[in-house]
Design a protein around this nucleic acid. Structure first.
Lengths: 220, 220
DNA sequence: TATTATTTTTAGCTATATCTAATTTAATTT
DNA sequence: AAATTAAATTAGATATAGCTAAAAATAATA
């Protein structure tokens, strides 16, 4: 059973709102996420339920099914692969890619995605540091922690940022704390929680607790 | 005024059927090209006429307007650039790309197309040898002639094929007469019009008039 | 020219995806 | 437990894009 573009978008929203399929999701929340009205959501839920990608009990919210989860992860995979393409190959900035990827993710061609994946050298994370599911929908995501929660002397790699405002991105660029950078916590000022960090084994920088809280790291 | 995907497809069909905007096109022909019914075409012509991309007089066929021509050429430009991407970067065969490009051509992002063009090094022809319009809709196409119409001793470069069946492509591959190959007419058998051709200055091949009629060349 | 054939359009229907307004169900509060 | 509030659904529109069947207009032919 094929899904329309609108159905794919709703399913993706439900997947995200349910935090990977665990939580039940309300009609209102979906309407908020999709920027549509609850009435439209009710209609769509009936359709998605008919196609067995969600379990739907009227007035009691929805759960995504295993099949639905697989479908959502396929769409997410395509979205994130296109984002990598736009940034790595077409020199888009990481905060410019979402809209276009939102369109590209609906192109229907398994071969295209296979080839794109190979061409990009099988990336595991998108430009925002979010993990890219494999073609079976498996995500091998190591836990990501905010930089300010790391212990002294610990090492890791920056994989994502929470704030992606232009100002914040400029700051990161300036100090060299880009996605992929390897970091080590050298010191912590107990008074304000600010940190001294070694970036890529060559540069010492100081960072406020606030800033560090917006940077996500995979420990190693 | 923006066009929907369906409107873009109709406009492209009208542009092609009118051979670049010169001829007037009938409802039936459009229905044939679009694989829809004439009744659906009538509906669509009203919409396209409202958006001033065609001139429409009921029962007398349509003419594409200057604005319509510009829009059609934009879509064709996007289609052909994506075809180059699929063949050059993702290793698709030239006869595998049409379907996917048909979807990709509707992605709405001028920046994307600008960057893609640069990334592909501003190609002037697509993998089938068809010219790629520039961002203003200008096509700088040198005239293309069937190989069998070339004079003795004339040189040229293969830029396209009319027949793209697997069998024909295999044959071309075997004899080295791929797109881009430089050729010279060495001899012509008057009896059946078959040709002896020098390919890339190193290989002599014989070719029937029929085969040669399916190969398009730019003379030089 | 009158008749026939072809082409094109209109009228009315279906499906998707949205909306507003009204109604129903569930949850909360007094 | 009854009344109120909040959430969700249904009913009935609209717009797009297609269809079939019937009607109208043009083109072709006897």
């Amino acid at each position: 059973m094929n899904l329309t573009t609108a159905e794919e978008n709703y399913l993706k929203a439900i997947y995200h709102l349910s935090e990977g399929g665990s939580k039940s999701v309300s009609t209102n929340d979906i309407a908020g996420e999709m920027k549509t009205k609850p009435a439209s959501v009710s209609d769509m839920l009936r359709k998605l339920s008919d196609k067995e990608v969600i379990e739907y009990r009227k007035y009691y919210g929805v759960h995504i099914t295993e099949e639905g989860k697989k479908r959502a992860l396929q769409t997410i995979r395509k979205h994130r692969l296109w984002e990598v393409f736009l940034v790595d190959k077409l020199n888009f900035a990481w905060d410019e890619v979402h809209e276009v990827a939102e369109e590209l993710e609906h192109i229907q061609s398994p071969l295209l995605i296979q080839r794109l994946d190979a061409y990009l050298n099988y990336p595991k994370f998108d430009p925002h540091g979010d993990p890219i599911p494999d073609e079976y929908g498996d995500v091998r995501a190591r836990p990501r922690v905010p930089l300010n929660e790391m212990d002294l002397d610990q090492t890791g790699q920056i994989v994502a940022v929470k704030d992606s405002s232009a100002a914040f991105l400029r700051y990161l660029d300036k100090v060299g704390a880009y996605i992929g950078a390897r970091i080590k916590i050298l010191d912590r000022v107990e008074f304000d929680g600010s940190l001294e960090i070694l970036v890529d084994n060559k540069k010492n920088i100081f960072m406020s607790k606030d800033v560090a809280g917006n940077i996500l790291v995979i420990q190693s």
